[in-house]
């Protein structure tokens, strides 16, 4: 792994972290509405895995989607504008925080019905197989999604049809406020994949290198014709499920323990210990991220609201 790549991952993870913190502030100011689900704590998952994909691969995820959108390379300004419901947003202000997408980069959202997008991912993979390409689909979902029918129907069909899809479970230990051992008959989530004959591996989601390596391996297997693959990535969201979460379901001690494994802290310590870069270089990255976010917020705030007639555009392609 070369220095530039590692520093870029650090930049991407820092960008997500700071984007989420800024979003949280803007939410409290009433500038972001609806639900807001922060990705803080899970940054290594999106960054490690999306950086392992090839350009033609597809990405699709659930409503905790800011990290994926930023990592895929969507313009931070346009993402922030979407958060603020502005006409310049990635989804023209019609989608909001949970519905970011960038189809040019093959990022298909941002989906708010738990588990439903696994079926969309199945269809994206079917299209690639149908067209005979070597592209794969990276489909992200939480541990909570592994209990819904969509999960089981999608994994089964991907197995029956040998579809090029990488199922990525971001196991952050809770389906909303319900712990894994209270919501899933097996706490060993990856075991569910074996019921559909899909090879699975468990990965430390706080270690961006481990996530990257596991994703590369799984995508290679898919491209080698070995069919769908499954990763259970062990992670943790440091904040609540969404803004306003009373956090009654977990202890402060538990959160503190996980925070010791902050994925950005781990990467930073690695960079310094291995002398990949000095503190000054990391500080410079932090400053650049801050500048980028300031510009994004400024752009979003200055952007116009959607015009009234936008209510009726894009309902149909052909009216």
């Amino acid at each position: 792994m070369d220095k530039a790549t590692i520093l870029d991952w650090y930049r991407q993870m820092t960008l997500i972290r700071r984007f989420e913190q800024r979003s949280s502030e803007l939410y409290q100011l009433g500038k972001i509405g609806g639900f807001l689900h922060l990705y803080i704590g899970q940054e290594a998952v999106a960054v490690g895995s999306i950086n392992a994909k090839q350009e033609t691969d597809h990405v699709i995820t659930a409503y905790r989607d800011h990290g994926h959108a930023l990592t895929i390379g969507s313009d931070t300004k346009l993402i922030m504008a979407e958060m603020l419901g502005k006409a310049t947003g990635v989804s023209k202000g019609k989608g909001g925080s949970m519905h970011l997408a960038d189809v040019e980069r093959r990022f298909w959202g941002g989906h708010a019905v738990v588990g439903a997008h696994l079926s969309l991912a199945t269809g994206l993979a079917l299209a690639e197989q149908y067209n005979g390409t070597d592209a794969a689909v990276l489909c992200y979902f939480g541990d909570g999604a592994t209990n819904i029918g969509y999960f089981h129907e999608s994994l089964n069909l991907s197995g029956v049809w040998d579809l090029p899809v990488l199922w990525i479970c971001e196991n952050n230990q809770y389906g909303m406020g319900t712990a894994v051992d209270r919501h899933s008959a097996t706490s060993n989530i990856m075991q569910k994949a074996s019921g559909y004959n899909i090879p699975a591996a468990q990965v430390d989601g706080m270690d961006v290198f481990a996530v990257h390596e596991a994703t590369q391996k799984a995508l290679s297997a898919i491209r080698d014709g070995k069919g769908p693959q499954f990763l259970e990535i062990m992670t943790y969201r440091f904040e609540g499920h969404s803004m306003g979460d009373p956090l009654r379901y977990r202890t402060k001690e538990e959160v503190e323990k996980w925070r010791e494994d902050d994925p950005i802290g781990i990467l930073e310590r690695h960079i310094l210990k291995e002398k990949i870069a000095g503190k000054d270089e990391l500080d410079a990255i932090d400053t650049a991220v801050e500048t980028e976010l300031n510009a994004a917020v400024e752009f979003a705030e200055a952007s116009p609201l959607p015009a009234p007639e936008e209510l009726f555009t894009d309902i149909y392609v052909e009216n």
């Binding site: 439903a116 079926s119 969309l120 149908y130 969509y150 999608s154 089964n156």
Partner: peptide, 13 residues
Amino acid sequence: MVIGGAAVGAAMA
């Protein structure tokens, strides 16, 4: 569920 959803996904692609 996946007949409907996968058809949507394939159409999106």
